[in-house]
């Protein structure tokens, strides 16, 4: 079967529901999915934040201080660390008045080389059409 591409699309805001966290934890679980797969098979996830979901990628989240839980920011940075592409919809950022300097752009402090990609919705849609499976959260 080879590599199967999965696109996780997150449209819910953070901390309002469990959905964004479940999207991130499921996507990150791709790292250990091989134990259930045949040799040569793999899953290749991409996570894209659209609509109010772009709020998940706002930096300097204080979830541990306020709620006593790990932040969505932590999960996004871990995604970058494992080289999982993190995409944020530019049009939805504009709609919410968000600039790139307000967003999580990298996780260099953890050793990640990959950076967040700010993309148009058209690019996300193109990926939706290209992947084998689409998972909406």
């Amino acid at each position: 079967m080879g590599a199967v591409k999965l696109l996780f699309v997150v449209q819910r805001p953070p901390y309002k529901s469990e959905n964004p966290r479940l999207a991130l934890t499921h996507a990150i679980a791709s790292q250990t999915a091989e134990i259930y797969m045949d040799d040569g098979d793999s899953v290749v996830p991409i996570i894209a934040f659209v609509g109010d979901g772009v709020l998940n990628a706002v930096k300097d989240q204080q979830a541990m201080k306020i709620y006593g839980v790990t932040s969505t920011e932590d999960h996004i940075k871990n995604s970058l660390l494992i080289d999982m592409p993190v995409w944020v919809c530019k049009e939805d950022m504009q709609r919410l008045g968000l600039k790139e300097d307000q967003m999580i752009t990298e996780a260099e402090d953890r050793g990640a080389e990959l950076r967040t990609k700010f993309v148009s919705f058209a690019e996300i849609q193109k990926e939706m059409e290209a992947v084998q499976h689409l998972l909406f959260f």
Partner: peptide, 11 residues
Amino acid sequence: SMDWYLAKTVK
């Protein structure tokens, strides 16, 4: 764990 679900997407 969640990797079970991810693995199922392959086949």
